[in-house]
């Protein structure tokens, strides 16, 4: 197998100062994501999903342990290096789209390229290329306020992809979409993953969205709790996920 795109090693995240009430959001988490893999992170509220995503996406700093993305150790980087790293190696898709409503769809997608200092000549082909893949080339000159939620999330996906990052981090991307748009977006992600070999890490609490992944990591109370692989059809994988989530519920009740 190829080199892992993400290598998380004994990661800890503690909130609060020493000698105070400390809260261990992540406890000794270790896992890898291989290049071209589509991995889901699931868990109940407060399990540490968002913390994990924030730390991996370099928005937050870990307390101990190391994270390597595409061979680079990000735990030792400074703020500005991290910002540059994010703009070059990572693509983000958020629940609330996070498009800039004062820019057109085109400009929104082009922004990561502009920030990288790509010359104007090369920006347009890249933007049009990715827009075509996501089926949004018709709305390219519109402002985000005039397009639908599903379209917005596609634009967000296009923006996450346009600079060909090492990995896409998706934080509840279907959270604000109806089931039809959610399904269509997940299919798009699968398509990107299969056809372009894009590595995707998806954080979600929606079992249906999660069922599109190849592998799912469950976390609870800051620890890796279970890992399941998809070997069968999506429907039976969906059922498998639901079973694991049911386990969570019962284990909570027993306490």
């Amino acid at each position: 197998m190829s080199q892992p795109v993400l290598h998380v090693n004994h990661l800890n995240k503690v909130y609060g100062k020493k000698n105070e009430n400390q809260f261990h959001a992540l406890k000794d988490v270790s896992f890898d994501i291989e290049s071209g893999e589509f991995v889901g992170i699931m868990g109940p509220s407060g399990a540490g999903k968002t913390t994990l995503l924030n730390v991996i996406s370099t928005l937050d700093q870990s307390s101990s342990g190391t994270i390597e993305i595409a061979g680079t150790n990000i735990t030792a980087m400074k703020q500005n290096q991290l910002a540059d790293f994010r703009s070059e190696q990572l693509g983000f898709i958020f629940q609330d789209f996070n498009l800039l409503e004062n820019l057109t769809v085109y400009e929104n997608i082009a922004l990561p390229l502009s920030l990288k200092g790509v010359s104007t000549r090369h920006i347009k082909p890249s933007v049009m290329n990715v827009a075509q893949k996501l089926g949004i080339e018709k709305i390219i000159d519109k402002y985000p306020i005039t397009i639908s939620g599903g379209q917005k999330q596609r634009v967000a996906a296009a923006r996450a992809l346009v600079h060909e990052p090492a990995m896409i981090l998706a934080d509840e991307p279907t959270g604000a979409l109806d089931s039809k748009n959610a399904k269509s977006l997940m299919e798009t992600l699968v398509h990107l993953n299969e056809k372009l070999n894009t590595s995707i890490m998806l954080v979600t609490h929606d079992p249906l969205s999660a069922s599109y992944c190849q592998r799912i990591l469950f976390i609870q109370d800051g620890q890796l709790y279970k890992e399941i692989h998809r070997n069968t059809t999506r429907n039976s994988f969906h059922q498998e996920i639901l079973d694991v989530l049911a386990e969570f519920a019962t284990s909570n009740e027993l306490e």
């Binding site: 703020q79 910002a83 703009s87 990572l90 958020f94 800039l100 990561p112 920030l115």
Partner: peptide, 11 residues
């Protein structure tokens, strides 16, 4: 959002 997608604070 800009900060998340990797714009330096100075920028």
């Amino acid at each position: 959002m800009l900060r998340k997608i990797g714009v330096r604070k100075s920028l």
